[in-house]
């Protein structure tokens, strides 16, 4: 009997697919961690008093925004070896995704920092704080709070974008499904399981972002007993 969804095939393949999902999640967390840090330096450099530094940052952001992520991945994995930089697939994927997400997230940081009222800078300066101290103690703690929901949305996007890494043979979820589908031709079953797996992670994550958004809007009042 012809059937679209084959439960037996689904069960047989759930193990390898979960292993793929694990790689996807790993990739996501490594890139999140790296790009949260890198983006901060990019954002601060983009607001530097040194004009050439600002230009470099601006150019980097525009290039990243103006080219497809898939191309950036392919570039890092296939083109860099031609100039002697050979990276394994996972490292290449991490590098390309981090370059891409650091550019976007630096813009999120920048808007967060610029959303802090001028008066906060004035008050910090008037108390004798240097620019660096004011940034660290006064501006960034407030800016980070503002950008948390936006960052959350970027990370859900990243979780899904890691699927592009299948193009550079990282054995994440989509790649694993492709390999197995090529063997047993059970496209409907395999890709449906894959879709369910992505959704099962990103839907709760989206709810969490919504929750964080509500919490950060609540202001700085602490609930006291």
């Amino acid at each position: 009997m012809f059937e679209l969804f084959n439960p037996q095939v689904a069960v047989q393949n759930v193990g390898p697919l979960l292993a793929g999902l694990l790689i996807t999640v790993e990739l996501t967390f490594v890139v999140i961690t790296l790009s949260l840090v890198c983006a901060l330096f990019v954002a601060l450099a983009g607001m530097s008093r040194l004009a050439p530094l600002r230009w470099v940052v601006k150019a980097y952001i525009e290039v990243i925004r103006g080219t497809p992520l898939l191309l950036q991945l392919i570039y890092v994995y296939y083109v860099l070896p031609e100039i002697g930089i050979r990276l394994d697939a996972f490292t290449a994927g991490v590098l390309a995704l981090t370059l891409n997400y650091s550019a976007y997230i630096s813009e999120v940081y920048r808007s967060g920092i610029q959303a802090i009222a001028r008066g906060q800078h004035d008050a910090a300066a008037a108390l004798g704080m240097t620019h660096a101290l004011a940034m660290r103690r006064i501006i960034l703690p407030q800016a980070i709070r503002i950008v948390v929901p936006a960052l959350g949305n970027y990370f859900i996007g990243l979780f899904k974008d890691t699927a592009l890494c299948s193009a550079v043979s990282i054995q994440e979820l989509v790649f694993t499904a492709q390999v197995h589908a090529a063997l047993n031709f059970q496209y409907f079953t395999l890709y449906t399981v894959v879709a369910v797996m992505y959704f099962a992670v990103s839907f709760p994550a989206a709810r969490l972002v919504n929750y964080l958004e509500r919490v950060t809007k609540r202001g700085y009042r602490r609930r006291r007993a």
Partner: peptide
Amino acid sequence: SNRAIAAVRAQVGMVFQHFNLFPH
């Protein structure tokens, strides 16, 4: 230097129209 300027500011208190307290 910025540090010297900050050191002078540390000796002069200023209060603003809009308070500018640190909300966090």
